[in-house]
Write a protein that binds this DNA or RNA. Sequence first.
DNA 1: GTTGTGTTATAACAGTGTTATTGGAAGTAA
DNA 2: TTACTTCCAATAACACTGTTATAACACAAC
Lengths: 204, 204
Amino acid sequence: MKSIRAGTYKEIARANLRGQLLDAASRILAAEGAENLGIRRITDEVGASTMVFYSTFGNKQGLMEALWLEGFERFWLLQQEVLELNLTPFERVLALCRVYRTNALTNPEYFSITFGGAIKADIIPEAVRTKSRRVLDTLVQAVNESMEDGQLTKGDALEVATSLWSSAHGYCTLELAKFLEERASDEVFERHITANIRSYLVIS
Amino acid sequence: MKSIRAGTYKEIARANLRGQLLDAASRILAAEGAENLGIRRITDEVGASTMVFYSTFGNKQGLMEALWLEGFERFWLLQQEVLELNLTPFERVLALCRVYRTNALTNPEYFSITFGGAIKADIIPEAVRTKSRRVLDTLVQAVNESMEDGQLTKGDALEVATSLWSSAHGYCTLELAKFLEERASDEVFERHITANIRSYLVIS
DNA sequence: GTTGTGTTATAACAGTGTTATTGGAAGTAA
DNA sequence: TTACTTCCAATAACACTGTTATAACACAAC
């Protein structure tokens, strides 16, 4: 009996291998940081030679881009949890800002890859760009809904979302870089975000 | 005739050497980026062996910290130019935010070292911390003066300055990471900062 | 002059990402 | 089965990094 398609078994094996490598890389990244994420370190973990890494990802940049995508996916999933919370549009905007920091603090290594500029890319790969847009769109949509709802003054939702994103992002990166010292806290972050969003309120 | 102090000539020679190495490193950093800043690349530039690097800086981390300090110094000098502009306290706060972006865009490699988290340090060296405080203090003082002047509502000047810093910082890092795509501009940045600072105005 | 301390050049080491070579397994057709 | 083809993986090497052991050297102190 002929197999369904030539190379099926092999492809399944390779898909598993790719998953294993990604899992191993993800684990090492989270536990030991990006500076310990070496090719041999990864392949040893799954008991393979270095060549399987290169036939799977091409080169290290290929792995980093895969982790880049993975990081966006994880953050997007966190965002979805917030969307299911049945909040008012305005509360949703705030909650999305808060979850940005949650994501940064609970998985700083992934954060430094997704948003922290850990990957030096002259141009952002299209796949990454797509995922990053989806993540920003979540916030843009919440802002838009809050504008429709009459809490935020109607205007350029994309620019407002970008402004909030910049504020949250800046705070998180400075906090992770330990520049805020002992001053950083949930409350200070809350006031920081609130200060920014207040300007966009209808009644301010 | 006895020399003024033992080892004088040697120390002068070494000081010059350190200056030459730092200059070379600084030039390579600005022109070719941090990923091309290798020890041999630097020592070749001044025609010395690798050992002079290690007797001067200890290790590469030592050089990076020196560049870290240098980056803060350069930014501080930019801040001083703003302070000499004889602006109102409130305009001074805005101008200091603008110069933060100017510094980031005109010397992104230095920026990634000073503020961008390019250096992976478990604890920030005290010398760096001192310089970073001085740079933040410039903004804190301007905020304070604007509070005294009655434009910003009186409150925690350090927290307000940190908030503004976070906003400017986040925007700059996202812009440099090319996440803002073609949307980034002087005007958008201006509106972003203005939106944040407006919350702290007495009359808003 | 001799000693001692510290700096330098040479060359090597251990680690990285990457690749050329070779061996062998999987698939195809007679 | 047998032979042919194709493709992937293991080994070992390459070029490069940061770093250091060795040995020659310069120079201040006695």
